[in-house]
Nucleic acid binder design. Structure first.
Lengths: 191, 191
DNA sequence: GTCTATACACCGATAGAC
DNA sequence: GTCTATCGGTGTATAGAC
């Protein structure tokens, strides 16, 4: 259509994110997006051919920003610590749940999600491989296994926190902290 | 309203599950449910006062069945192995994604989900505590931490498998197998 | 780039007959 | 217990003026 990257374009994606987070994908409609930025519904279809396009583009912009944060953390002095910080402070868990649900039935979105998972995991594996080189005593699990454990736990902890469950969180966070301290003994920090 | 537990009642919950799994909560409508079991839309409102009630009841029935499986596994000869089997072969990950998304904005469902998480975790902790008694060398992580790791990983692996991602799965499954073998050295099995 | 107006489908929920 | 019929509301998407 026209003008990806313009002010209205970004405003629509911003609204889409907020609606997804606060009201769920069932509420992500062209009318609702338009209402959020005080324009008429018709304009949404000027920027996005279908609502499907809007959803895919919303995830795409979000995932590119997230990968940027991960690459920045990878290049830092304490990659493991900073990558974990990015994972545990990533986008709202409710919004992630919505994208997951959508990805199961939207093939274009699914491909974007798969791309994101694979790229982010590659960054994590790179950091873990470098940190664990010559330290076989820290973990017998391969870097790829540790990476999936990290993302999986970060997501579960965020989600349960949002639901109001806390059982076992302290234990897991302590274990992760110990692991990072052993693999990357540079400075001390709080989780 | 009337007759919870009757044939039509169960048929409606069965349909609701299938629709959630295959089409998402956006498609879970009274008309769609009625269509699936060849009755008219009006009948759904005879069994469930609102669509909200139908959703909550669908999760409730499912979670009670799941807890029953977990309790059965706990009472078996190899509790850790069997509980893990239940976790990794639980309800379809797409359906779980839908319930998660719904629970973030439906307070009655949220309470049911919290109850399920806490009860299932208690069962897992019980099994882990018993298995690890006097075996401090197997893991330094407390049982509650190990429980959240297990559920978290089972869900992530199922979800990624459904999406078509495999990176690191083999490593994680091997690690879990090793852990169970060390904590519960009874018989050998495949994961 | 932003608007008015509209076609057409589907939603939740209810009234009331049999 | 199951049906027909219907209300008011909201959804995607498009035509076309300014």
């Amino acid at each position: 259509m026209a003008t990806p990257g313009s002010a209205s374009w970004h405003a629509m994606l911003d609204s889409a994110q907020l609606i997804l987070r606060d009201e769920g994908y069932g509420a992500l409609t062209s009318r609702r997006v338009a209402e959020c930025i005080n324009v008429k519904q018709r304009l949404v279809y000027y920027y996005f051919k279908t609502m499907d396009d809007l959803i895919v583009e919303t995830f795409r912009r979000l995932s590119l920003r997230e990968l940027e944060r991960l690459r920045h953390a990878l290049a830092s002095k304490a990659p493991l610590r900073h990558i974990w910080d990015v994972c545990i402070h990533t986008s709202d868990s409710r919004m992630i749940s919505e994208f997951m649900a959508l990805a199961n039935r939207n093939d274009r979105l699914r491909k974007e999600v798969v791309r994101f998972i694979e790229e982010s995991r590659a960054i994590q594996v790179k950091a873990l491989r470098a940190a664990l080189e010559g330290k076989s005593s820290v973990s017998r699990i391969a870097p790829a296994g540790l990476a999936i454990m990290a993302t999986s736990l970060a997501l579960s902890i965020m989600r349960e926190k949002a639901l109001g469950v806390n059982t076992g969180h302290r234990d897991v966070l302590a274990a992760i902290n110990d692991f990072i301290a052993a693999a990357e003994p540079a400075k001390r920090a709080r989780t």
